[in-house]
Design a protein around this nucleic acid. Structure first.
Lengths: 124, 124
DNA sequence: AGTAAATTACGCACCTTTTTGTAACCACGA
DNA sequence: TCGTGGTTACAAAAAGGTGCGTAATTTACT
């Protein structure tokens, strides 16, 4: 996010979305405003360090907005920006593509013994 | 790629597409059939290890088809499967979203001194 | 003729770099 | 002392790079 001045936009989005967490967080945030601890509850396997790192990355990219409420047990809320909301359907489309592809594979593999996909497949 | 039996499809696509190479390789392969050495020339910074690893991953996912031609020097060709071709516009859409988002950010930042995006931005 | 080198698409072993996890700490006030 | 959101230092794990070996045939020297 620093020395790479400007490359192909696809490379840049993928750098943002790569990894387990970004899309997951977007998924939960599209449900509405969430606090740090909400997001940890939503996804118990993320460490708090990762969560704050990933949230900051999304914030820097302008797809998540962070709002800090002064007060005793400090409260911070996260929500998708308009740009973030515009990203959601694109991610969903990828998920749908994957589902369709997997199903097609299944069908092809159950339909006939030698699938059309594996022509010169390596020996293994 | 092994113990995770079945999760959210979005997590699975992202696992496939995460990293620098998968989308780049898809980008070059959408131009047509390519050989291993072609792809290395297209992208000189990938090591042969990474290239073969990534190609195998895409092959296993059913979005790239590998064809081996016997003979010496052994020749191998790679091309997108129909599923792979169906994925291309989705990736392009992500790139377009990123471009649009970046431009909007620029405009917002040049238009008025205090951008609408940075409300409670941390001190840095 | 005979040997050597180059070619292609890798696999493997070793090593470095990057990413991620763990744990401890900070501030504040109920 | 607990809970909040976060940072830092250190350790572990994962990702990635380098270089060598392999195949069978052609070409390149000697």
């Amino acid at each position: 996010m620093k020395s790479l001045v400007s490359r192909c936009p696809i490379e840049e989005v993928m750098q943002l979305l790569s990894g387990r967490w970004p899309t997951l967080l977007i998924y939960y945030l599209k449900q509405g405003t969430k606090r740090f601890s909400d997001l940890r509850r939503d996804n118990p396997t993320i460490s708090h360090k990762m969560l704050s790192l990933e949230l900051r990355k999304l914030e820097d990219a302008g797809i998540v907005e962070r709002t800090e409420f002064q007060g005793y047990p400090l409260r911070v809320e996260y929500e998708l920006t308009p740009a973030g909301h515009r990203l959601v359907p694109l991610i969903d489309a990828l998920g749908a593509w994957w589902e369709a592809t997997s199903e097609a594979d299944m069908q092809a593999n159950t339909a006939n013994g030698e699938s059309a996909v594996a022509k010169v497949s390596r020996p293994d």
